[in-house]
Write a protein that binds this DNA or RNA. Structure first.
Lengths: 159, 159
DNA sequence: ATTGTTTAGTTGTCGCTTCAAGTAAGTGCT
DNA sequence: AGCACTTACTTGAAGCGACAACTAAACAAT
């Protein structure tokens, strides 16, 4: 049990601000999507990830990596999105264990309809308040943090 | 319906990284506190906020502001923390509607015992990977974002 | 071939958050 | 003083996510 290295005053302020951002930002995205698209941010993110993949098809395990979710969570959510007709599930022809999710036409329409409002919200909340220089810095800072948080680059496509 | 201002490539990368951080960071804090202290991050944050207030006493509505939670959520959580003996509820003498939460000795002991591990985790995940310069930049960037996300400074103490 | 292990997903249960409704105290208007 | 309105919670029901247990397919070793 070594002595705790407490935060300096500057670090403490930075930390409180960062925590505040991580508490508030998800709520804003959630609210906009819920209101304008009737989707949770996670549901939108799932559909968006599939829509950006080749052939609009993804295995659930790959989807779980990219969305930072457990397979259990994903299984429940994909089930609901299936019920709503935004995607379809099928068994992989090359691996009998794997389920693959395919975006339906309705799902694609949904993503296309939801994206502009979502992007507007992202601009309003993140990019508009920052200078171009700060966007660069933020990007670099997040990249550094991700070397610890996500050493295998499981999010950000490509495992 | 004006034309969507899509993100540039650089913005898109920055955005994906930021989303990844906001997805992963809370999980790390949650896991450490759950493991070492048996508390959720939100429970810890509630106790910490009370412990830092004058007299270790706070009205629930003030607590709700500082923790970015609904009163409903807070009411449930405070009920549980009360059951566990970490705080006590009482009615405000000056306002019959208001409940005030008081940290008990056990609650104080819990916060003091949990803080070092929490700070270590914060250092490991956020401050150690960054240069001093980047910490400054991050702090400034978060401050800018909070002008939109939290215009009334409801979080960060002082409304 | 068979046995054991790993991988991929599903399902049921529990706990927590949200949401809607309700209660009670305070405030403003007349 | 009386009435509507707002504020500050509390409570119960419903939904989502985490966890544990389970199924089934693929792989690895002998």
């Amino acid at each position: 049990m070594t002595k705790t290295r407490w935060l300096t005053d500057d670090e403490r302020v930075a930390w409180l601000r960062l925590v505040a951002v991580t508490m508030l930002l998800p709520g804003r995205l959630e609210a906009e999507l819920r209101r304008d698209a009737g989707l949770s941010h996670f549901e939108y993110y799932v559909l968006a990830m599939i829509s950006e993949s080749e052939g609009k098809v993804l295995a659930l395990s790959e989807l779980a990596s990219r969305t930072n979710s457990s397979l259990s969570r994903l299984s429940h959510v994909v089930g609901r999105l299936d019920d709503q007709g935004f995607l379809a599930r099928s068994t992989s022809p090359t691996d009998g264990r794997a389920s693959i999710a395919t975006l339906t036409d309705d799902g694609w329409t949904k993503v296309v309809a939801s994206a502009p409002g979502h992007v507007e919200e992202v601009r309003a909340v993140v990019f508009d308040p920052l200078t171009a220089r700060q966007v660069e810095e933020l990007s670099e800072i997040c990249a550094r943090l991700l070397t610890t948080l996500d050493p295998d680059h499981r999010l950000l496509g490509l495992g």
